[in-house]
Design a protein around this nucleic acid. Sequence first.
DNA 1: AAGCCAGTTGCGAATGGATCGCATCTGGCT
DNA 2: AGCCAGATGCGATCCATTCGCAACTGGCTT
Lengths: 142, 142
Amino acid sequence: MSIDDPRTRKLTEALRRAGVRITRQRAALLRVLAEAEDHPEAAELQRRAEALVPGLSLSTVYRTLTALEAQGVIQRHQFEGTPARFEHAEAAHHDHLIDIDTGLVMEFRDDRIERLQAEIAEALGYEIVHHRLELYVRRKTG
Amino acid sequence: MSIDDPRTRKLTEALRRAGVRITRQRAALLRVLAEAEDHPEAAELQRRAEALVPGLSLSTVYRTLTALEAQGVIQRHQFEGTPARFEHAEAAHHDHLIDIDTGLVMEFRDDRIERLQAEIAEALGYEIVHHRLELYVRRKTG
DNA sequence: AAGCCAGTTGCGAATGGATCGCATCTGGCT
DNA sequence: AGCCAGATGCGATCCATTCGCAACTGGCTT
């Protein structure tokens, strides 16, 4: 994956939009984020980005992640019992299954559930700003 | 509410089952928990319980809450951006709406959603151990 | 091409919720 | 009444995350 593939570019543009400089550190982090197919936590992102920019600090990782999140191009997920995990938000909204034995995070989306949620909020006189649906699961035996 | 109303008793029995002593501190906390109709956090529970047992420490509150949670008679909810909140688990399972402007926590249950969740996990070869569904909402204008 | 300076970095300290270690106390048994 | 495993309160510790600050630098300006 090159430094100017579409996904990296999208993140870069989001940072520009946020009015911040594209530094070596941030460029590295953007690449790492764009490449990530999993749901890494901040420390793991730092580890990966340090391969490109040795010495890159965890503070910078968090600062950049916060900026990207504010621009809506990445999402922060606070699953139970672990540090926050991050993923690029290019895909449509989805919810998560977390294998409690392995930590594996999977994604799913169900429009029927989405609709029911909206109905429930509506009936109570509210509108949903965002929601969180996490299924903590275990592989079926047999 | 007296010290031996049914709800307090249920909590007390859970602690006995856990093989721990019913101390003044714990008795106070159990009453406070049994009386709570909201979703208080640990510090708030300490505040309420201190009215009955001055000097009751936050450590004791957390230790007791952890024991009660392990027995399944209370539930711990980690909503976004706030300390954990607790509630007695006598009612059937339910999910939550959180008013992001006021912090008000409401409960709901929808069997259709429950069923859909189970189907989704099933289809992927998993069984749900527990789940978390939180709707972060805002009062509708108009 | 060199200068400038607001924005950025890395470090270490601070924060906040939750847990732990330990010396002292006490519930509830004998 | 006496005993002692278990409980308490205090302060220290943990962990993820944020903050303060002095030093550094991206990238515009001249």
